[in-house]
Deep mutational scan, measured.
Amino acid sequence: VTTYKLVINGKTLKGETTTKAVDAETAEKAFKQYANDNGVDGVWTYDDATKTFTVTEMV
């Protein structure tokens, strides 16, 4: 189990959260659900070296 981080660069919501998951795919599903629940829709990137997902909403 690995800890993954999500950085949110939203128009109205900004911040970070973490989740523990067995792999990046599982973490991504959890983060996308979290973003969807919070009304964040944007471009996703993932950095495997730092285990960090970033979602950026276009203005």
Rank of each mutant, 00 (worst) to 15 (best):
D47G: 02
K20E: 15
K20M: 15
V40F: 11
E57F: 06
A35L: 09
A21E: 04
T3S: 07
A21N: 03
F31M: 03
T54D: 03
G39P: 02
K51S: 05
L13I: 15
V22P: 09
I8T: 03
T17D: 03
T12D: 14
G15P: 05
I8N: 01
L6H: 00
Q33L: 12
K11M: 11
E57W: 12
W44A: 01
T52L: 04
A30F: 15
K11D: 05
N38L: 12
A21D: 03
V1H: 10
F31G: 00
T54Q: 05
V1S: 09
K5S: 06
K20I: 15
A35C: 10
V1M: 13
Q33P: 02
T54F: 08
K51H: 13
Y4T: 00
Y46C: 01
A21W: 03
T3E: 14
D37Q: 12
K29H: 08
K11H: 12
F53G: 00
E25G: 10
D47F: 04
T12L: 10
T3G: 04
L13F: 15
T26E: 10
V40N: 02
E57P: 08
E16K: 06
T52W: 02
T18S: 12
G15E: 10
G15C: 12
F31Y: 02
Y4V: 01
L6Y: 01
D23E: 04
T2G: 07
T26K: 06
G39K: 08
T56L: 06
Q33E: 08
T54S: 06
E28M: 15
E25D: 12
Y34S: 02
D48N: 08
T54K: 05
K14L: 07
T56Q: 07
K32P: 00
T50V: 05
G15H: 14
K32T: 04
T17V: 15
V43R: 08
T3F: 08
V1Q: 13
E28H: 15
K51G: 04
V7K: 08
Y34C: 03
T45D: 07
D23I: 03
N38Y: 11
N36A: 14
F31Q: 00
V55A: 03
D47C: 08
F53M: 02
D41Q: 13
D41C: 13
A27Y: 00
T12A: 10
W44Q: 01
K14T: 11
A30R: 05
T18C: 09
T12F: 13
T26V: 06
T19C: 11
K5H: 10
E16C: 15
I8W: 09
T56G: 03
D37A: 14
V55F: 03
K20R: 08
T19H: 08
L6G: 01
E25V: 11
T54M: 07
G42R: 01
K5T: 11
G39Q: 08
T17E: 05
A35M: 06
N9I: 14
T18L: 08
Y4D: 00
E57G: 05
K51A: 06
T56A: 05
A49V: 11
T26F: 07
Q33I: 14
F31V: 02
V43E: 10
L13T: 08
D48S: 12
V22G: 11
T50M: 06
V7I: 12
N36C: 12
N38G: 04
F31P: 00
D48A: 12
M58Q: 13
T18H: 10
M58L: 11
V22W: 09
T54H: 06
E28Q: 15
T26Q: 12
V22C: 09
N38A: 10
A35F: 03
T56M: 05
D48W: 06
T18D: 05
